[in-house]
């Protein structure tokens, strides 16, 4: 029997698109092998499908289009969403933008890794007469952080002049001190930043991203700022003559 008159084109399309159940499919396969005209009809539609697939396969969403997507209309209208969607590319872009001075960055990294941490009690002495200080926090020990906050508050009260600036830069485990979900100290830090205009607390975007992708997102208070990376922020400050301290 010539099968080409028993199957509609819609039915053949369903066969090619893998929409038939196994019984119907088996029947089609059998008929395709025994009826040349029917096989020809199937083949024409199959080739058409392949041509459509091929026609757009070379189309690429190139980097230039991605850049314009992230940085122009989309971002200006919906920056919060854009930042979320394009987090990796945005962070990478900021990093490359800011890290113009490799030397400063290298020095900063060296300072951050090799400087000996000071105790909370010695913060005031370590600051001395310096008017611009960057305090690096890479660890969080809840049991001793009360003392750290107390000493920072005392320092800021002593140095209430407009010339004095203290910037706390946190990354890695240090960010946990700022996590509103798990740290009792997050609210205290927030109070300090609200109380003292010359205090800024900066979180490292790189670490935040890493923690978020590991499933441990940090929730920050609104007053906490974010820098592309802790090293970059420290480089920016130390290259401008700020005193570097690590706690």
């Amino acid at each position: 029997m010539n099968q080409q008159y028993t199957y509609s084109d819609e039915h053949i399309s369903a066969y090619i698109d893998n929409e038939l159940d196994s019984e119907e499919r088996a029947q089609f396969l059998s008929d395709e092998q025994t009826d040349e005209d029917f096989a020809q009809r199937i083949n024409e539609i199959r080739m058409l499908k392949e041509k459509v697939q091929l026609s757009y396969s070379e189309l690429k969403y190139d980097d230039d289009e991605k850049k314009s997507f992230s940085c122009t209309a989309f971002f200006s209208r919906h920056r919060a969403l854009a930042a979320s969607l394009l987090l990796l590319s945005v962070v990478a872009g900021i990093l490359s933008y800011n890290m113009s001075s490799n030397d400063n960055l290298m020095v900063a990294k060296q300072l951050m890794t090799e400087t000996q941490p000071i105790s909370a009690a010695s913060i005031n002495d370590a600051v001395g007469e310096n008017s611009h200080v960057v305090l690096y926090v890479s660890q969080y020990q809840p049991e001793t952080f009360d003392e750290t906050i107390d000493n920072i508050e005392a320092l800021l009260q002593n140095r209430s002049d407009d010339f004095f600036k203290l910037e706390i830069v946190a990354n890695g485990q240090g960010l946990k001190a700022l996590d509103t979900k798990s740290s009792l100290h997050a609210a205290q830090v927030n109070q300090l930043t609200n109380k003292f205009n010359n205090l800024k607390v900066v979180a490292c975007a790189k670490s935040l991203t890493r923690l978020a992708t590991e499933g441990n997102p940090i929730q920050l208070m609104q007053s906490i700022m974010i820098a592309p990376s802790a090293a970059d922020q420290v480089a920016k400050r130390t290259s401008a003559g700020w005193l570097f301290l690590k706690i």
Binding site: L81, S84, L87, Y97, T209, A212, P217, Q219, M225, I226
Partner: peptide
């Protein structure tokens, strides 16, 4: 830059579905 960085904060408050969608997008 500041706007971008502040916006990144929003990622940290994304729901699991939103994070999954970010990756998928």
């Amino acid at each position: 830059e500041t706007k971008i960085l502040n916006s990144i904060k929003n990622l940290l408050m994304l729901s699991p579905n939103q994070r999954k969608l970010c990756k998928r997008l």
